[in-house]
């Protein structure tokens, strides 16, 4: 029997898959830090946004709490917040990995190293 939580997890795993395979592209919106001592969002440094199937999604992590995923309108007002189910932190990790371009960066470093090794080998063989 599929429960409401199972459905939410299915949706989150689909978002993770879409993000990892590049079907969903997230953009980083940087927040200017506020000076409020009561606002829990004070420690939110980056908010990730995407548009998926006609809906705008916003993902962020406030201090001392689990990541928050929301459906928002054009003005950025939260229309619905996903309950804090398991998998949201994995979604955030995947989004950070993709938006920071970690894969490309690692490929670049490895590619550069291989190129250096090849040129060294060629110079030794001469």
């Amino acid at each position: 029997m599929t429960t409401a939580n199972d459905k939410l997890i299915d949706a989150i795993v689909s978002l993770i898959d879409g993000t990892q395979k590049g079907r969903i592209t997230w953009e980083v919106k940087k927040l200017t830090p506020t000076l409020s001592l009561t606002d829990p969002k004070i420690a939110v440094q980056a908010v990730y946004q995407t548009e998926y199937r006609g809906r705008k999604l916003r993902l962020y992590e406030a201090a001392y709490s689990s990541p928050t995923l929301e459906i928002i309108d054009d003005d950025g007002t939260a229309l619905w917040t996903f309950p804090p189910v398991s998998g949201l932190d994995d979604l955030l990790s995947s989004v950070r990995y993709e938006t920071a371009g970690v894969k490309e960066f690692l490929d670049d470093i490895i590619g550069e190293d291989e190129l250096e090794l090849k040129t060294e080998e060629m110079s030794h063989s001469r």
Partner: peptide
């Protein structure tokens, strides 16, 4: 592996509740 991952987080969520 995707299915296993999905089932793992479902179990995790059920156990947490």
């Amino acid at each position: 592996v995707r299915d296993i991952y999905k089932e793992l987080i479902k179990v995790e969520e059920a156990m947490r509740n």
